[in-house]
């Protein structure tokens, strides 16, 4: 079965997929660019020097040709309907920005594998579930980001969150925010998914405690609570 957009299952090599890949940016090029001023300058020429010297806000990605940034850049993230800014090193992932750089921190998304394997950092970007550890924060300008914190609160749980509690779809809870977000995206796509569809849609998330069967029950229960409708 094909991997869902932006994410891959455990049976396929992880490969960040972007619906609209911004030209020229990759985590690798930023890692290179950030590893030292001289190297970044050699690779990026004037652009890198400018970024290092003036640390301007991150411009929208240039549409032609690669661009290398170093030093710190200011990113604007639209998270759960609110505009947030943070000044970060260019190699900072969306996950890193959420957890360590925006104020107040959004630590619901967890860092577990840090390489697109486990799904604990899953967020919804423009309606699709993605691994936030595989997205650069500077790529997120203009994108609509939803994190677990935006889905509900302890006093006003979303249908998925309530079903997770009711069915004990969590133990230690560290994978849980990622599963909640992926399950939410699953139900926005499939109103009344069967068990195989749920397993497929959640196959990018892993749990060590072994909550899977209760997660599946919770998603089926939440689908009923949502009346089988798709969308938000």
């Amino acid at each position: 079965m094909p991997p869902r957009d932006g994410r891959t299952g455990p049976d396929t090599p992880p490969e960040p997929r972007e619906e609209r890949p911004p030209a020229g940016f990759s985590r690798r090029s930023f890692l290179v660019g950030a590893s030292g001023g001289a190297l970044a300058g050699a690779l990026g020429g004037g652009l890198a020097g400018k970024a290092a010297a003036a640390t301007p806000p991150a411009a929208p990605p240039a549409q032609e040709g690669p661009e290398t940034l170093s030093g710190t850049v200011e990113v604007e993230l639209r998270v759960n309907g609110t505009a947030l800014t943070a000044r970060v090193l260019p190699q900072t992932t969306l996950l890193g920005a959420l957890r360590h750089h925006v104020d107040p921190p959004l630590t619901g998304s967890k860092e577990v594998c840090d390489r697109g394997t486990c799904g604990a950092c899953t967020v919804i970007v423009d309606g699709r579930p993605v691994y936030s550890c595989m997205q650069l924060a500077v790529q997120m300008t203009g994108r609509e980001i939803r994190t677990v914190e935006g889905l509900g609160t302890p006093d006003a749980l979303s249908p998925v969150q309530a079903a997770f509690c009711e069915h004990d779809a969590l133990m230690c809870g560290f994978c849980t925010p990622g599963f909640v977000v992926a399950s939410t995206a699953c139900l926005e796509k499939h109103g009344d998914p069967d068990l195989d569809t749920i397993k497929e849609e959640l196959s990018g998330n892993v749990c060590r405690c072994g909550t899977y069967p209760h997660v599946f029950e919770a998603v089926q229960s939440a689908a009923k609570a949502r009346g089988g409708r798709t969308g938000r």
Binding site: T107, T153, Q161, F164, D168, G173, T176
Partner: peptide, 13 residues
């Protein structure tokens, strides 16, 4: 149900 479930499913924990 776990008493700390609501905090864990919302990322508040």
């Amino acid at each position: 149900p776990r008493v700390d479930g609501p905090e864990k499913v919302t990322g508040v924990a």
